[in-house]
Design a protein around this nucleic acid. Structure first.
Length: 152
DNA sequence: GCCAACGTTGGC
DNA sequence: GCCAACGTTGGC
């Protein structure tokens, strides 16, 4: 099974928080990078599986799996003047940023640390481990997906 | 908190 | 359309 990897700062939305939301799931908002936006808009589909990656935190790595329950729609946070994701240049007629909804599927027994992902030759092509990569939404191939699941 | 690497902006 | 300056990301 192929899928996606989404980065999140767990202080904002962790795999645990997602689990607590239950079947309601959560809005995956705040993607403010055009390459990542384009993938959300054009390629991420309902029922796609998503590896949830915790960044900028104590235990950096892949924390679990989510599933897409709603495909691309305008990211509501871009219109919210109180949000840190507010974008004054975006309009409802021509929204610039895209969100999807996801639901919790699985929390890994342990967080697979970034260092281990880097050390695994089978994951060398994963954008996450490539030098200076800042992509917050990226595709995961079937082979990479299997490799990661085995590392849990 | 540091800083390397990247993306975006804006003057020309 | 180039590119320097600036802002952001994100691991350490």
């Amino acid at each position: 099974m192929s899928g996606w990897l989404f980065k999140t700062e767990p202080e904002e939305l962790s795999i645990e928080t997602l689990a607590r939301r239950g079947a309601k799931g959560a809005v995956w908002e705040g993607v403010r990078n055009y390459q990542a936006r384009n993938m959300l808009r054009d390629q991420v589909k309902v029922d796609d599986r998503v590896l949830i990656y915790h960044s900028s935190c104590k235990l950096i790595g892949i924390a679990g799996i989510a599933r897409v329950i709603k495909a691309a729609y305008p990211d509501p946070s871009q219109f919210d003047a109180k949000s840190i994701y507010f974008d004054a240049a975006s309009t409802r007629e021509k929204p610039r940023w895209i969100a999807v909804d996801v639901v919790h599927e699985q929390t890994f027994k342990r967080i697979i640390p970034l260092a281990e992902l880097r050390d695994n030759p089978a994951l060398a092509e994963l954008p996450l481990v490539q030098r200076g990569s800042r992509l917050s939404v990226m595709p995961v191939t079937t082979a990479q997906w299997k490799t990661i699941l085995k590392m849990e």
